[in-house]
Computed example of a mutant assay.
Amino acid sequence: MRPVIVDAARTPFGRRAGWLDTVHAVELLGHAQRGVLARTGLDPDLVEQVIGGCVTPLAEQFGNVTRTAWMHAGLPSLTGATTIDAQCGTAAQATALLAGQIAMGAVDVGMACGVEMMSHVPLTYKVGTGLGTPRPASWSIDSPDQYTGADRIAANRGLTRTDLDAYGLRSQQRAAAAWDTHRFDAQIVPVTVVDEDGGSRVVTRDQGLRETSMEALARLAPVKEGGLHTAGTSSQVSDGASAALLMAEDRARELGHRPRARIVGQAVVGGDTTYLLDGPIAAAERVLSRTGLSIADIDHFEVNEAFASVPMSFARVHGVPEELLNPLGGAIALGHPAGATGIRLIATAIEELERRDAQLAMVAICASAATTCLVLERL
Rank of each mutant, 00 (worst) to 15 (best):
F301V: 06
P259H: 11
A306N: 02
A306H: 08
Q359A: 12
A308R: 07
L345C: 10
D357C: 06
A296K: 09
F314E: 03
I295G: 04
L325T: 11
T341H: 06
G335S: 07
L324P: 01
I281P: 05
S313K: 03
D278E: 15
D297V: 01
E351V: 02
R260A: 10
D357T: 05
A306I: 08
P337C: 00
E322T: 13
T274N: 12
V268N: 09
R262N: 13
L353T: 00
L325C: 10
A340G: 04
L328F: 07
F314T: 07
G335Y: 00
P259W: 07
L276V: 14
V303L: 03
D278F: 11
I298V: 14
L345Q: 12
E322Q: 15
S313L: 09
P321A: 01
T274A: 14
E322W: 12
V269T: 09
E322N: 09
T273S: 14
M312Y: 10
G265L: 08
V317Y: 07
G339V: 07
G292L: 10
G339T: 09
I346V: 15
D357I: 07
G271L: 11
L360S: 08
P327T: 02
G319Q: 10
E351N: 15
P321H: 04
H318C: 02
H318I: 11
I343Y: 05
E322G: 12
E352K: 05
R290K: 07
R290Y: 03
E302P: 00
G271F: 11
L328N: 15
L324V: 06
E351T: 02
D357R: 14
V317I: 11
D278Q: 14
T274D: 13
E352N: 11
G335E: 01
S313M: 11
T341S: 15
G279V: 01
A296Y: 07
P321T: 05
P311Y: 11
T274W: 02
L293N: 09
